[in-house]
Design a protein around this nucleic acid. Structure first.
Lengths: 339, 339
DNA sequence: TATTAACACGAAACCGTTTTCGTAATACAT
DNA sequence: ATGTATTACGAAAACGGTTTCGTGTTAATA
C-alpha cells in the first residue's frame, strides 16, 4: 500500500513551501530552474497526481457531466451515451449516468444528488412519468441555479435550455409516404399515448402523410399503447382484428414483434404486409427479415448534446440564449419493405 | 438566478458562527433549541444543501463508483450497469461510466482520470486489448493505492481483488450437452480467440461435453473469430464449407446472424440445425425463431459487483481477503432448439 | 554607496465543509 | 463568597489544492 502523495508531502521532503511546489509543478516563471527540476523529478518519482476533488472545490468546476435518462437497456439511449462519452472524454470530462427508470421521483432524486456540486451540467431525456405529469420544477430549480441543462429526444417546451431532437414528425412522414408510394392502402400506426413528446410528433407525421394522400386517415388503424413497454397481448389483439398491409411502429421492438405475428399468420413480408420502425438498433439489423427503420442517429445526438453543454459550461458570459438542434432522421431501407 | 447558499451565508445572515450553523443543521446536542430552530428554518427557506465536493474533500469519500467497461452498446453490459446503478443508488452512490472501447490505452487513461480522488472504487470488465496484452499494471497501481476494485466477466488472475463471473464453462457445457441429448451429431462452436477469458472458458465447456460423449472433438468444427465484432464473411464461409446440425455461439449476434444464413440455405430450425447463443438480450428474445441462450444474468452480476465493492469501500478494516463469486448460468429455452 | 529592480520563495487566504477544543456565562453546590 | 458543572457557542485546524501578495536577497544602476 503506497497511498497517494500530496503537495504537502513533497514540500516537507524537499524542505520548501507548498506554494513553491505547486508553482514548480506548473512550470511557473517565478520558480528557479533548479527548484523546478528538483520538484518535478520528485513528483514524477513518487507519481504525484493532483487530487481532483481539491481542484474541483477550488475551481468550482468538477469536469463531470450528469446524464439522466429513463433507461439504459434501450439501444437508442446507449448510443446516445456513447456519443456523449466520446465527445465529453475528448474534452476531459467524465460522465455520471443516472437512470430514472421512467419514474418522476427517481428523476428528481437523481438530479438533486448531482446538483449539489457533483456535476457542471446536465444532459437529460425526460422520463415518461415526468412528461405525463408535466411537472418540471426540478429542472427549473437547476437552471435557476445557473447549472446548464441540455434536453434531448424527450424534451419539454416549458424549460428554457438547449435542446437536441430529431425531426420525429418528418421521420414518420417519410416512412408513411414511403408506404403510400409503394401502393400500400391500409397503413397502421403502433404508437403510445401522446404524452410522450416523440410519440406525439411521430403520430403527427403519420397523419400528415395520410391527409396529403388520397388515402385519408382511419383512426381505427392507430394503436396507442400505454407506454414504450412491450405489451404482447395488445399488439396481438390489434392484428387479430385489423386488416392492414403496412405498419409504422414508434420503436423497433413493437415492429419486430409485429413482424413475427404477421409471419405466424402466414403473411409474406413485405408483399402482404410491410414494416417500418423507429430506432436503428441491433434488433432491426438482425431481425428476420431485417427491419427498415427511421434512424434517430443516437450517437450524433449524444455528441451534439455534449457539445452544447460543454460550450455553455466553459463559456464565461452567461448568455441567456438557447438553441434547439433538430437532426434530420434518415430512412434505413432493409428487407421489411420493397426496395 | 439564485446561486447556491453556503454555511457561511447562513452564518452571516443569522450572526452566528459557521460551526454553530453546521452543528445546528446536524441537530447537535451542543446547540440550543432556539438556535437550532432558527438555523434550520432559515436553511429550509433558502433550500440549503451541503456541497458534495466539500464533503468529499473532508471525508475522503466521494460516494461515486467508477465503472470501466469495454462497450455500452452490448446488451450484456447495459444490464450489468443497470444492476450496478440499482444497488449503488440505493446505497447513495453515483455511477461514473467510462468506456474503454476495447482499447488498452483508453482503459488506462480512464482509470487514471478517476483514480485521483473522483471515485471510491472501481467496477470493471477488461478490454479485449488488455486481456490480449496481459498488462495489468494500471490495475495494480490502483489496488496498491488501496482503492478497491471489483472485476466482472472479463477478469484476470493476476490481480488480487474481488471478482464476479458466471461459470462460463458450465454454461457452454450445459448447452453442448443439450445438443447431444437431442441427438445432434455435428456440433459447431463459433467463438473468439482464447485471449478473451470468457471465450476460453466457454470453449472448454464445449470441449468437455464433447469429450464426455461418444461424439468426440472435431477441431475443424470450431470457428475462432478475431474478436467479438461481427465478421459476416467469416461466418458465411464457415457455413459454406462445413456441414453442421447444431451451433453454439459465444454471443447472440453470431447466433442470430448464423440462423439467418441457415434459413437462407433453406434449412429448418431446429430440425435441420439448432442454435444456442450466450447473453440473454433483446436480440435473442425477438429473433425469428427466438434464440435459446445461456443467460449470463447481467443485472445480478452488476448488483453483486456493486455489493462487493461497497462493502469494501465502507469497511473500516482493510482486510486483504478477496472473494470470487461464481454465478450459475441458466439455459433459457426458446424456439431455436427442440423443446 | 545608496537606490532600485529582478528574482525566488513563503505566508496566508480561499473553496465549503466537519470536528476538536477552548471558554464565557450561567447555574448549582459548598 | 468560592469552586465546579453545565450549557452554548466560537475559533481554528483540517481536507488538498491555487493564487495573490509580501519580502528578503542579490544584482544592476545612478
Amino acid at each position: 500500500m503506497k497511498p497517494k502523495i500530496t503537495l504537502k508531502d513533497i514540500a516537507r521532503e524537499l524542505e520548501v513551501s507548498i506554494s513553491t511546489v505547486s508553482k514548480a509543478l506548473k512550470n511557473s516563471e517565478e520558480i528557479s530552474r533548479d527548484t523546478k527540476e528538483k520538484v518535478q523529478a520528485f513528483a514524477k518519482l513518487y507519481n504525484y497526481k493532483p487530487n481532483n476533488i481539491a481542484i474541483s472545490l477550488k475551481n468550482k468546476r468538477t469536469k463531470n457531466i450528469g446524464v439522466v435518462i429513463p433507461d439504459i437497456v434501450h439501444h437508442f439511449f446507449t448510443t446516445v451515451i456513447r456519443g456523449i462519452e466520446k465527445y465529453a472524454n475528448a474534452k476531459g470530462y467524465n460522465v455520471i449516468v443516472c437512470l430514472s427508470e421512467e419514474s418522476f421521483d427517481k428523476e428528481v432524486i437523481n438530479m438533486e444528488m448531482l446538483a449539489n456540486g457533483s456535476i457542471d451540467g446536465f444532459i437529460m431525456s425526460l422520463s415518461s412519468e415526468t412528461q405525463q405529469k408535466g411537472d418540471f420544477n426540478h429542472l427549473k430549480e437547476v437552471t435557476d441555479q445557473g447549472i446548464p441543462v441540455v434536453l434531448f429526444d424527450r424534451i419539454t417546451n416549458e424549460i428554457d435550455c438547449d435542446k437536441v431532437i430529431i425531426d420525429d414528425e418528418l421521420g414518420a412522414y417519410m416512412a408513411t409516404k414511403k408506404f403510400i408510394e409503394q401502393g400500400k392502402k391500409n397503413i397502421a400506426l403502433i404508437t403510445t399515448d401522446d404524452y410522450l413528446s416523440v410519440s406525439k410528433a411521430r403520430t403527427q407525421g403519420y397523419l400528415k402523410a395520410l391527409k396529403e394522400s388520397k388515402l385519408g386517415v382511419d383512426e381505427s388503424k392507430i394503436l396507442r399503447m400505454p407506454s414504450m413497454e412491450m405489451d404482447e397481448k395488445g399488439i396481438k389483439d390489434f392484428f387479430d382484428t385489423h386488416k392492414v398491409d403496412a405498419v409504422l411502429c414508434v420503436n423497433e421492438i413493437f415492429a419486430v414483434y409485429s413482424m413475427r405475428l404477421a409471419q405466424q399468420k402466414g403473411l409474406k413480408i413485405p408483399e402482404d404486409i410491410a414494416f417500418i420502425g423507429f430506432t436503428d438498433g441491433l434488433l432491426s439489423k438482425y431481425a428476420n427479415p431485417s427491419l427498415t427503420v427511421v434512424s434517430q442517429h443516437g450517437e450524433k445526438m449524444g455528441e451534439v448534446s455534449a457539445m452544447l453543454l460543454i460550450d455553455k459550461v466553459e463559456s464565461e458570459e452567461e448568455e441567456e440564449t438557447y438553441q434547439t438542434k433538430i437532426l434530420e432522421p434518415t430512412l434505413v431501407i432493409r428487407d421489411s419493405i420493397f426496395h
